[in-house]
Design a protein around this nucleic acid. Structure first.
Length: 681
DNA sequence: TGTGCCTGCCC
DNA sequence: ATTCTGC
DNA sequence: GCAGAATGGGCAGGCACA
């Protein structure tokens, strides 16, 4: 019956164009009074398609919406490839929600974004990964872990697997016998998710989930589980949701006679802008209901205490590419630009609020304030304390050796504690490299040129070596000078350069944008510069999601000719085209083995799903750095500290079917490469 | 109490 | 992080 | 070119279990 109802729910879409608008006010009230048996005879406002008649908006009716509706929408989105079509379907769904209960718009949006709330507020982690979910399935459906893993390999998705298992249980828990109070509503699912996030022990978590699953239909299980795992795989995320939301908002405003003279493009622009500065749909939706989408732009702007989405950079293959980006040969348009060191640390957004409190946010808007208690006393860096009430700074926190006066590698920074840090206990000191200012004393600086913003922050701070510095920089349009500066940055233990427009339209701060206004130039991007390695395929991992049925990644190793052993070096899962994956699967599936050859040196933590003793195919691999690893084994006998060597940011660049495995990069060569790095401690 | 495994978050 | 791909 | 979804190494934190 549920299934039936759902199908009906969707098929109604076409019919509902006949609904008379004039009667909607009454109809809404009818919805309200019919709540109790909403499910037996759902009187929820159906989807309306865009061309259809408008509706009279209601503020908030406490209409419960079945979780099944949300799950079905996810299913539809997953099976809709076209982005435009996705946007239409999402828009219809948002319309449906806002008609029935404006208050649930926030919950639905958060669910679709696969988050419990904005990153910067919610310190709630669900704490579910593949293993715990498999344990849930094991206990809920009575399969053995090994058998579940086999099934997972075929299905390639834990949600889909749960869907199947739940479907097979049909005869035991017949959905048709479900009474209304067993039905799960969006509110219920949401409440459960929030409760689960507060639970610590696995046992309790499973105890909470199991009864839920037994009340859910297969498709509900599927997306509930996917939410837990953090991979909704509906091909719709922030941007798609934003477009649909903005259209829904605009339409809503039109029915209440506000936000006139706005089109969908403009609405999209406004919501994007607002979300990039205040990435919190609870705030945005509340404000929208108050003032409409047109006013949103002026009512919600960046403010200290709320992290905005940081501006990102495009990878750039050569200094010349960067040059030509700001030097348009066609139009003759010429922008000034600046090269800055790209420091190898943690991107941070530093906020001082009016009341003097400080907050530090990571690149992904997580609150990292507790990790850096020594920065609470930030005002010591101000030239003039009285002139700074509040600000937002963009910069990089880097581990710093104050004795030797030098930058330390990223890996050292990561050893810092993250919780309950006492200033006295800090072992790894840090230096902040400031490279932008986004707000000062309540004024947004986003629209100013980088040249202006630089002047402003340089005026605010008194630099202090090893504690707060400005990003080292060079302003030039000479290609060879840029190349030399890139070399120097690597010598100085940086990753490379950032190249940014200094003046003109491209020099504004664009939150959340990975445009060519900022470009990153790294040694390993340059053709023929970065060292590549030829590594042996030792084993493989079954692909998930769009890689179901292929290998999703491989375990690679280096060759030790002294004893004919192959030592693990890294896993690899990027750089493959679909064709590569198909080709490798065709070649390798014949050789699958459960048992590792005796000359394969590996750690249990990197054990692949299957091993290949043959044909020892080589992949050419690029990386940014080499690192001492807790789990990989390359050169472990000769590094002198019982650790092997691994790769940072490994990616495949080609299949080396022209070489024999004995010609693979040797463990000794890897050690040499490791030792020749500039950034050794 | 120590260790291993898993997860989330950095890159 | 890097990379590929459909739109 | 955008947006989304595949995938990497490695750290702290914290639960499970011996």
């Amino acid at each position: 019956m549920n299934k039936q109802r759902t199908l009906d729910f969707f098929s109604k879409k076409r019919k509902c164009s006949t609904v008379a608008t004039t009667a909607i006010n009454n109809e809404s009230r009818e919805i309200n009074t019919n709540l109790m048996n909403a499910l037996k005879k759902p009187k929820l406002e159906s989807f309306s398609s865009k061309a259809q008649t408008p509706f009279i908006p209601v503020k908030t009716y406490d209409v419960k919406i079945p979780f099944l509706n949300l799950a079905e929408v996810c299913e539809v989105l997953e099976n809709t490839p076209s982005r435009l079509a996705k946007q239409d379907k999402l828009e219809d769904f948002f319309d449906f929600i806002i008609k029935n209960d404006t208050s649930q718009l926030e919950v639905v949006t958060n669910f679709l974004l696969n988050q419990l709330g904005p990153e910067y507020i919610q310190d709630l982690e669900l704490g579910f990964g593949e293993h715990l979910i498999i344990k849930i399935l094991q206990e809920s459906f009575g399969y053995k872990v090994a058998s579940l893993k086999t099934k997972l390999k075929e299905v390639g998705d834990l949600g889909q697997l749960t869907y199947k298992l739940r479907g097979e249980m049909k005869t035991v828990f017949a959905f048709k016998s479900k009474s209304d109070d067993q039905q799960i509503f969006i509110d219920d699912a949401w409440k459960a998710l929030n409760e689960i996030a507060r639970i610590n022990t696995h046992k309790e978590k499973i105890g909470k989930i199991r009864p839920l699953l037994s009340r859910m239909s297969p498709v509900e299980c599927k997306f509930f589980i996917r939410f837990l795992e953090g991979k909704l795989r509906i091909g719709s995320s922030n941007q798609t949701i934003g477009v649909s939301m903005s259209r829904c908002m605009l339409k809503y405003d039109q029915t209440r006679g506000i936000s006139k003279g706005m089109d969908t493009t403009e609405a999209d622009r406004v919501l994007r802008k607002v979300y990039s500065q205040v990435p919190n749909y609870a705030i945005i939706i509340d404000k929208f209901l108050d003032v409409g989408i047109k006013e949103l732009e002026f009512k919600l702007t960046l403010q200290p205490g709320i992290p905005l989405k940081p501006m990102l950079a495009k990878p750039c293959k050569s200094a010349l590419d960067a040059l030509s980006e700001f030097n348009d040969a066609k139009t003759g348009e010429k922008d000034e630009f600046i090269c800055e060191y790209k420091y190898d640390g943690e991107r941070i957004q530093f906020h001082q609020l009016n009341d003097g409190t400080i907050k530090i946010f990571s690149r992904n808007s997580e609150d990292m304030t507790t990790k850096y208690p020594e920065l609470v006393d930030f005002s010591k860096f101000y030239k003039n304390k009285d002139e700074v009430q509040s600000l937002i700074i963009d910069g990089e926190i880097v581990a710093y050796d104050v004795v030797e006066d030098k930058i330390l590698p990223f890996q050292i920074l990561t050893t810092r504690k993250r919780k309950n840090v006492e200033i006295e206990d800090i072992k790894v000191k840090v230096c902040i490299y400031v490279f932008d200012i986004l707000s000062l004393n309540g004024e947004s600086l986003l629209e100013k040129t980088l040249e202006e913003r630089r002047k402003i922050y340089m005026d605010v701070f008194e630099t202090k070596k090893g504690e707060l510095q400005f990003a080292n920089n060079l302003i030039t349009d000479d290609e060879s000078e840029i190349s030399a500066f890139l070399d120097q940055s690597v010598q100085d233990k940086c990753e490379g350069l950032m190249v940014k427009a200094l003046t003109g339209r491209k020099s504004i701060y664009q939150p959340a944008s990975r445009s060519k206004f900022w470009m990153k130039l790294k040694k390993d991007y340059l053709q023929g510069i970065g060292d590549s390695l030829d590594l042996i395929i030792m084993g493989a991992y079954f692909g998930k999601g769009k890689r179901t049925g292929f290998y999703g990644g491989f375990l690679l190793g280096s060759y030790n000719p002294d004893n004919d052993e192959i030592e693990t070096c890294c896993k690899i899962g990027t750089g493959f085209s679909d064709g590569h994956l198909d080709q490798l699967h065709k070649i390798l599936k014949e050789y699958e083995s459960e048992i590792a050859p005796s000359n394969y040196i590996y750690d249990s933590q990197t054990k692949p799903d299957i091993w290949f003793s043959q044909p020892k195919l080589l992949l050419e691999v690029l990386c940014a750095d080499l690192s001492l690893s807790p789990v990989y084994k390359s050169a472990i006998d000769i590094t002198g500290n019982n650790r092997g060597i691994s790769l940072r940011f490994p990616r495949m660049i080609r299949i080396r079917d022209d070489k024999d495995y004995s010609m693979a990069t040797s463990s000794e060569q890897i050690l040499e490469m490791y030792q020749s790095q500039a950034n050794l401690q």
